[in-house]
Write a protein that binds this DNA or RNA. Sequence first.
DNA 1: AGACAAGATGACGTTTACGTAAAGAGAACG
DNA 2: CGTTCTCTTTACGTAAACGTCATCTTGTCT
Lengths: 133, 133
Amino acid sequence: MTEETMTIREMCDAFDVTPRTLRFYEAKELLFPIRDGQKRLFTRRDRGRLKLILRGKRFGFSLEEIRQLLDLYSPGDRQAMQLAATLDVARERLVDMERRRTELTQAIDDLKNQMDIVEDMLSSAGRVRDAAE
Amino acid sequence: MTEETMTIREMCDAFDVTPRTLRFYEAKELLFPIRDGQKRLFTRRDRGRLKLILRGKRFGFSLEEIRQLLDLYSPGDRQAMQLAATLDVARERLVDMERRRTELTQAIDDLKNQMDIVEDMLSSAGRVRDAAE
DNA sequence: AGACAAGATGACGTTTACGTAAAGAGAACG
DNA sequence: CGTTCTCTTTACGTAAACGTCATCTTGTCT
């Protein structure tokens, strides 16, 4: 098995986060590193979860929202009822994300248009300045 | 002209925000309501800016990032140099937003897949349970 | 054994984006 | 004229997500 674990420093270097962040995520029950004495060892599962956490953060999700979604990706020993509830949460998130993408597309188009307008303003101002020389 | 202004309460009702939020945005120079005595009056320009602010927030942008973008949409009396700088900021934001959309699409696909997997787990568990009856 | 480095554990500090309570000004109403 | 709203300013409070010490263990090197 790829039971290859990583120290906290290796994790920090690999994911560009601080030790504080990893301990904080553990305290918030987003990660569950095992212990070697008092040292933390992060498993492949932790790495997968961290990747999802960082992605969720980039989308502006709170850690609590992310934690709920993570349960979907680690259905391990859940009961059917809990899984169904998690699925409901996931369905809401999915709708949310799709709505977000639609809106993002709109915002991108708007921004492009506005940039074109400003660029035109700049180039016409340039012609005015050139003509004055 | 549509010089139709709105009171703070009308704005709150229209955009579903609190007075505190609007005053806060003004303090942070995101909005510039005019005054009638000591009361604020929000113009069409303020409404346009607020719409963009709320949209930016849904994408997880900070108010400071949003403020910089707003300058692009209100190029009013800017100098060419400032406009060019604003354009540079906008270009970075645009790249950021497009990258975000790509990643969001990926996340949506991942989530759908994971939901399918969990749904399969549930339905197979259901069959096991049904068989046991 | 001594020292150094890596990691752990509190505990307080910081930033962002407001919430909330206190106190006063101005119009409006009975 | 007193009361009731609506709005204002000022100021302290708060939740999220860590940053930043200070202090303590522990393994490791010499």
